[in-house]
Simulated scan of single mutants.
Amino acid sequence: HATREAVDYQRATGGMEAFDNAVAAGVSRELTEAVVALVRGSEGAAIALDWAPAAGTPAGCPARPEPVAFSPGDLPALRRAGARYLRDEPAVAVRITGAVVRLRRSGPRGAGIVRLRVLAGAEVPHVRIELDEEAYRIAGQAHLVGLPVRVEGRLESRGGFRRLTGASQVVPVQVDDEERDRLMKSLQENVDFFEEACTGE
């Protein structure tokens, strides 16, 4: 309901501050983008919530919350809110485990850019990381043998791209055989990216 109320406030007053206050109720960039995806190209969408029978109704919540409806007229407010959340999102310290899916650097030596498919540690699908030469070598070797890496840093959002800055503690992580096979398949699917990284093109 906080998203609906914030949209109503924005449409009535033009102000975006209700979206700031709605963060405490769980409204986020991801939620606004999800609602936009549901409503775009339709006449509207109603979102209903049912509690899992095993968990029961949380304290202070209605047993059957009323559905919340959104219409195409709500899209501008939702898009502005999503852009605002993205712009104002603070950097957070994280420890991410991810599969190396892309390696790139300008020459055969030196620092390079690595893209990870995030497996754990952050609720984002991919991150880009600039690594020094030694960390880049570790990431490349892990990629070759089909192992993910663990890395610490600050997760930032710039222009819609997720970056990990101040990366440190880059180490390969052991995984079970099934996960390793899946990661090796990913390596084969991304072999062009790896060849670019090796040749420095």
Rank of each mutant, 00 (worst) to 15 (best):
I96H: 04
R64P: 00
A63R: 06
W51G: 03
P76E: 01
F70R: 07
L49E: 05
F70V: 11
D88S: 14
S71Y: 05
A77F: 05
A63L: 05
A45K: 08
A77E: 08
A69K: 07
A81K: 02
D88Q: 11
R102N: 08
A46K: 02
A45Y: 02
C61K: 10
I96E: 04
E89A: 15
A48D: 00
P67M: 00
A91Y: 12
A48S: 08
R95K: 13
W51C: 06
R40N: 02
D88F: 10
E89Y: 08
A83T: 13
R64N: 05
D74I: 04
V39S: 14
D50E: 15
A48P: 11
L38H: 13
V92I: 15
P65M: 02
P76C: 08
P90I: 11
A69P: 01
P72T: 06
A93F: 12
A93L: 06
A83P: 00
L75P: 03
L75T: 08
A77K: 08
G60E: 04
F70W: 09
P90G: 09
P62F: 05
P53M: 01
A81I: 12
I47F: 04
A63V: 07
V92T: 13
V68H: 01
A63E: 11
T97F: 07
A93D: 15
P65T: 00
A48G: 05
L38T: 09
G56N: 07
D74Q: 03
F70T: 11
V100A: 10
S71C: 06
A55N: 06
R87H: 15
I47E: 02
P90C: 03
A45L: 03
P90Y: 06
L75K: 01
L75D: 01
D74E: 12
T97K: 15
R84A: 12
R87S: 15
A93R: 15
V92Y: 13
R40L: 02
P90T: 11
G82Y: 08
P67Y: 02
T97S: 01
F70E: 09
A55I: 03
V94T: 14
V92W: 14
Y85W: 14
D74V: 09
V100S: 11
A55M: 09
P76M: 06
E43M: 01
G73R: 12
C61R: 13
A55Q: 09
P76Y: 10
V39P: 06
R84D: 13
T57P: 00
P58V: 02
V101L: 10
A52W: 07
